[in-house]
Design a protein around this nucleic acid. Structure first.
Lengths: 187, 187
DNA sequence: ACCTTTGTAGAGTGATTAGTCAATCTAGTA
DNA sequence: TACTAGATTGACTAATCACTCTACAAAGGT
């Protein structure tokens, strides 16, 4: 792992444990095994480090999610995969998931440009529009569906994260069904 | 408003806008119109201020929610009221709601004693158990229901917060129905 | 009137921090 | 070999911050 990645990895660990305030750049550099100067060679400011870490993680996540899709998958299968694999990713990358939420409810989120944030949700939004177009899911505002799906996802995650691994799968599967039932028409 | 309340109000405003790190105690004192010393007369440490602000807001919220219940309300009516009025409270107290979330995803949450946190969710948990006992809602783990309801609530809030006020009501009402359908048995 | 407690002020302090800078190292290229 | 550009170091600095301390004022009890 090169120095830049090392710095990002150390920053992630420390930010999640001690918060942005609680982690001086000097500790990040130390943990990463590099000098103070090197940190500022790669990241002009601490704020830049926070931002870049966020964007890196989000991109990794999206790449992972969409790598699970195969061409023959229908819209429903894709949505289900995105849902399920997000939770497995979050369980395997708890710090990263926590960090994303941490940034989301901090003033740092406003430092990240609107266009970057949009870019990351674009594919998910597209999926929803597609599902709406093919009449699979209800005619609700796309943003509402997106928000509800996200919230539900986090709800399931928050519950299963405290469960022993062998009990997680049925809850996750059932969790998706609950969301799906909510979003599809019921007679 | 006495000085202590003034300090809490100023802290809320500044913490939400600039984060915990971004707001020095000196700025809080200035904004509140008191001296540095006065702030530390009421709150031994900055951390104490952060904690007490959290607990105060949570208690206010709970008091508000349960003040809306009348004795003749059944379990379903109570749950609906708690749901609906939470959203209205959050819309009327955006900073307070944002602050709660901010603390939740920060290391400061670990500084708040387990018993205080439990006490605040106790009534909500009781409500769910009651609803389960009377067979109104599905037989799922109480914690799971609690988490899902919370998530759904925040999802609806996140959507309506960007809507003009006259369009909020139908979404909120419908939002509750979606959750209720999800938690009650479907044939 | 006297004393005690509590509230308030604001200058002061020691520690910490983000970011700088000049110097050295490394690797690629000609 | 000589040159260059980027990488790396770590001591240094200017600023900031949480918190202290001393002094004084207000309130209230006896």
């Amino acid at each position: 792992m090169d120095k830049k990645e090392q710095i990002l990895a150390s920053a992630l660990k420390l930010f999640v444990e001690f918060g942005f305030h609680g982690t001086p750049t000097s500790k990040i550099a130390k943990e990463a095994g590099v000098s103070n100067g090197t940190l500022f060679h790669y990241f002009a400011t601490k704020e830049d480090l926070i931002k870049e870490l966020y964007i890196t993680i989000k991109n990794d996540l999206n790449q992972f999610l969409f790598s699970k899709i195969t061409p023959e998958d229908g819209v429903e299968a894709i949505i289900k995969k995105v849902f399920i694999y997000f939770i497995y990713w979050a369980l395997d990358n708890r710090e990263k998931n926590h960090y994303i939420q941490q940034v989301l409810f901090s003033p740092h989120i406003f430092q990240i440009s609107e266009s970057v944030l949009m870019e990351q949700s674009q594919k998910h939004i597209q999926l929803i529009e597609e599902a709406k177009a093919t009449k699979i899911i209800k005619e609700l505002p796309t943003d509402l569906i997106y928000t509800l799906a996200n919230s539900h996802l986090m709800g399931i995650y928050n519950y299963v994260v405290n469960l022993p691994p062998d009990q997680q799968k049925p809850i996750i599967e059932n969790g998706f069904e609950m969301l799906w039932d909510m979003l599809t028409e019921q007679k």
